[in-house]
Design a protein around this nucleic acid. Structure first.
Lengths: 238, 238
DNA sequence: TTATTTAACTTGTATTTACAAGTAAAAAAT
DNA sequence: ATTTTTTACTTGTAAATACAAGTTAAATAA
């Protein structure tokens, strides 16, 4: 595990307010305390408070209105996978199960990989995982993850079942996801995909190709996610 | 038209840098001038410069690295419709044409509308437009837009052909898009959609349902976009 | 009563100052 | 030559202050 570095004040306030919004202390449409009130409540200055609030606004938790205040935004009821978070945080409190299809193995990169790779990545080979995510016992996501084998000792031996890949990377290797790119398509389900997602062949499936950046420059996490959107939508906010 | 209000300094610098990145003055991987250099160059203080840079970073134009500097991020080659901007700005310099299928008309809202509506919106009726967007002469988007008829005089009479709806709302009604929600699904093309997008029936199509917020509280712009993703992907950054 | 003005809030923009923390290259020591 | 240390940069965090601009409700005037 990793020593918890000192957390900035603005980040602490961000987490507190975020939790309050999630827990319903502040409900949709509510006004947050004004910036000056937050200054007093939490003993910080306005620039610091404002940094917390603008981080919340960027995440879609609140909207700010000059002259009025910060208003809590409604929370999405669909699956918010478009944001940076992994599947685990995206589905919230739903009944989420993970089934490992292919345990983490080290192997060479596919020949026609969906993103271009650096020389270092190519040489290192990739750690490969295939998983199916079930929501209320229905298979919704089939995802294939790739990450270059750079400074990740013992990763193939770790327990993937009930923890997110993100969490393992953070806890054991200090790797944080900083951002990323994604491409989205609608494709017909292949034989393989239709089997995993309990669909008929050629039924429309959402395909996300993602390249996630980490705090380790040169280390990226790639994933190809196939999504059954018959029952659930993918949700995004901006 | 609208009088150009005074533009904040940080916004001006944001626009300058953004343009330089778009024009290739700063290329992918380049370091921007340091914050202190930008202060001197543009005669502002560091917090102001930092506000410009963090806006650029939020938009995905740069990534900031403590101790190193701000690095220009690569530009997407696909269609960036996941962000706040409309189709016009999303496709960049591509050859984009717009075909109006149904000219703007005022009519009642559909019975089973995709988003819930306020009483005021319901009473006002909606302005309805159907358009097909062509990229290099191939039909890619079929979109249906709805907006409540609140303080939008003469809008059904305006020229929609070669201007974005966003532009008309901004120039004539001072309405700016502030953010929004969207749901994404993969669906089989209906008869109607397949005809407009030159696809076979039941081929997979990307379906976006969007609710866009404006600076006018209570006024939203809704759109249902069907997208042929055979050739182009939809691109997003976060 | 009604309409207008004022005042008291709210967030937005901007300056100035200070130090912490991360990075990279130059300088020094081995 | 190689390794280590120092130094000079970079961005990150934080405070104190000031005024602008938008919103709302109270006070005032018609």
């Amino acid at each position: 595990m990793v020593s918890p570095k000192t957390i900035p004040q603005y980040r602490r306030l961000y987490e507190v307010l975020r939790k309050h919004i999630m827990d319903g202390v502040y409900k949709e449409g509510d006004l947050l305390p004004s910036e000056n009130e937050l200054c007093q409540l939490y003993g910080m200055t306005r620039p610091t408070v404002r940094q917390s609030l603008s981080t919340l606004a960027n995440g879609g938790y609140i909207r700010k209105h000059q002259g009025k205040g910060s208003i809590v935004h409604h929370l999405p009821q669909d699956i918010g996978i478009l944001s940076v978070s992994g599947t685990t945080s995206a589905v919230g409190d739903r009944n989420l199960k993970t089934k490992i299809i292919v345990k983490p193995v080290l192997k060479p990169w596919p020949n026609d990989f969906m993103f271009s790779l650096s020389e270092l990545e190519k040489e290192s080979g990739c750690i490969y995982v295939e998983r199916v995510r079930l929501l209320d016992d229905a298979p919704i996501f089939y995802d294939i993850s790739y990450i270059a084998n750079i400074n990740l000792p013992r990763i193939t031996a770790r327990q993937f079942e009930n923890r997110s890949l993100f969490q393992i990377l953070r806890d054991h290797y200090r790797i944080e996801i900083k951002g990323g790119d994604q491409r989205i398509k609608a494709i017909p389900a292949s034989q393989k995909i239709s089997r995993f997602l309990h669909l008929k062949k050629d039924q429309p499936v959402l395909h996300l190709e993602r390249k996630l950046e980490t705090n380790n420059p040169g280390l990226f996490l790639y994933s190809s996610i196939f999504c059954n959107t018959e029952k659930y939508s993918i949700f995004g906010r901006f």
